[in-house]
């Protein structure tokens, strides 16, 4: 059921893509339901085997295909099943941020959060924070251009 508090006051609803590690953030998101926590329906989850699998191309694909914001949700430093996943993801975000700024989309549309598998509240906070940020920023410049071209 949709919570009214999770909706934008001006009617604009952004698309937010979350790349979530299956060992932590994806489990945390899964646990949100049984614990009675809601996160915005704007968030589309993509399960990764580890945030170390994150590729800059995944992020670019998300924006190219209509995302207004993207966030990466991975394990806490030192708790990664594959040891260095979040460290590698953070390195890749450096390049992704640079590309998003060069394109004019803006690195502020990309975020990273870390949590354990039991911290569903942390995942919900991340989902709300990125959705709110996307609402404030408005549609991504790329989506704005696409809409203008279709009109």
């Amino acid at each position: 059921m949709e919570n009214e508090a999770e909706k934008s006051p001006n009617g604009y609803e952004p698309k937010v893509v979350a790349f979530a590690c299956q060992y932590c953030a994806y489990s945390a998101a899964d646990l949100a339901g049984p614990t009675g926590l809601q996160y915005p329906a704007n968030v589309r989850l993509v399960k990764l085997p580890c945030t170390g699998k994150l590729d800059v191309l995944y992020i670019l694909d998300a924006f190219e295909n209509g995302a207004d914001a993207v966030f990466i949700a991975g394990c806490l430093d030192g708790n990664c099943h594959h040891v260095e996943g979040p460290l590698r993801a953070k390195r890749r975000l450096v390049l992704a941020n640079k590309i998003l700024n060069e394109l004019g989309i803006g690195a502020d549309r990309l975020g990273m959060y870390q949590m354990s598998g039991g911290e569903s509240i942390r995942f919900v906070e991340a989902a709300r924070e990125m959705t709110d940020r996307a609402r404030q920023l408005g549609p991504s410049p790329l989506n704005q251009r696409k809409s203008a071209a279709n009109e």
């Binding site: 670019l60 694909d61 190219e64 590309i99 394109l103 989309i105 251009r145 071209a149």
Partner: peptide, 19 residues
């Protein structure tokens, strides 16, 4: 191969940004 994918995506988006 990976860099080809990234650059192609960048160029497509850059062109879209220019309308």
């Amino acid at each position: 191969e990976k860099e080809v994918g990234i650059l192609a995506s960048e160029l497509r988006m850059a062109r879209q940004m220019d309308g």
